[in-house]
Structure formats: structure tokens, C-alpha cells
């Protein structure tokens, strides 16, 4: 279950791939929606740690347009519910993530992203 909260924290770490290596691009994915417990304090605390544009762009690619392009300064319940759904309830079960820079492909199997690199790819 690669949720978008995790996707927002993963970057390509292949040898010499240091720029434009985030966010990874989802390909050929299977989605599942699973309800998660709503916790507004957690969401508010996590907002400053997010790369907002990457989150919004990725959510839109997956068909969810509920988040505004700019992170709002004042947050209301409606916004937090949307953020909760995007971050924690959309699960990518199968597929892959491709580095926008070096095009390295990281597969997702049974909801677990495989971020291992071969010996010669490690920086």
C-alpha cells in the first residue's frame, strides 16, 4: 500500500541522479481506496513536511482534483477531509514509479515499493 504520503517522501537515489529526481511518476498502477482514521492534528502537523505541488500533481494524475494548487493558509474541515483522503486513503497496490530524470523504474509489488538498486547503480 504505497499511499501518497509515502510517495511524497520517496526520491530516486541512483548513482549521480541528483536533480529532478522527485517526484517519481506512477505507471500502470492499480488503485484501492481504503478508509483510514481521520486525525486533524496529525494532518496539520504534517502539512509543512509535504512537497505540495508534487502531491497535488500526483493526486490529479490519479483522478483526484479535490486539493487546491496552493496550500491554503487557513484550513477548514472540508480541506482537511480532502487532504486526509488523498494522503492516507488512496493506495497504490501494483505498478511502478519512474524517475523523471534518469528513468530508473521502481516496481511496486503487493503494495510494497521496491527501492533497491543494483550494486553498480548505488552512488
Amino acid at each position: 500500500m504505497v499511499r501518497l504520503i509515502t510517495h511524497n517522501l520517496l526520491a530516486c537515489h541512483a548513482k549521480d541522479c541528483n536533480t529532478n529526481n522527485f517526484p517519481l511518476e506512477f505507471k500502470d498502477i492499480q488503485l484501492e481506496i481504503r478508509e483510514a482514521e481521520f486525525n486533524s492534528d496529525f494532518l496539520k502537523g504534517f502539512m509543512p513536511k509535504l512537497e505540495w505541488k508534487a502531491l497535488v500533481d500526483t493526486a490529479r494524475q490519479l483522478g483526484d482534483t479535490s486539493l487546491p494548487l496552493e496550500q491554503p493558509e487557513m484550513v477548514d474541515d472540508g480541506f482537511l477531509k480532502s487532504l486526509h483522503h488523498v494522503l492516507l486513503e488512496i493506495h497504490v497496490e501494483e505498478g511502478s514509479m519512474t524517475c523523471p530524470n534518469c528513468k530508473h523504474v521502481y516496481p511496486i509489488l503487493n503494495g510494497i515499493p521496491n527501492m533497491l538498486l543494483a550494486e553498480h547503480e548505488i552512488g
Binding site: 500500500m1 504505497v2 499511499r3 504520503i5 509515502t6 511524497n8 517522501l9 520517496l10 526520491a11 530516486c12 537515489h13 529526481n21 522527485f22 483510514a36 512537497e51 521502481y106 510494497i112 515499493p113 521496491n114 527501492m115 533497491l116 538498486l117 548505488i122
Partner: peptide, 18 residues
């Protein structure tokens, strides 16, 4: 406990963002 599991070495793929 809702754990996000990543198959990888140490913290490598998370070091940039974390």
C-alpha cells in the same frame, strides 16, 4: 499500527525528503 513499508537499503530513498 498503520506502517508504510519500503523495500530498500537503510534510509536511502528517503534521505532527500526526510
Amino acid at each position: 499500527v498503520n506502517i508504510q513499508v519500503i523495500h530498500g537499503s537503510l534510509a536511502s530513498p528517503l534521505e532527500l525528503r526526510l
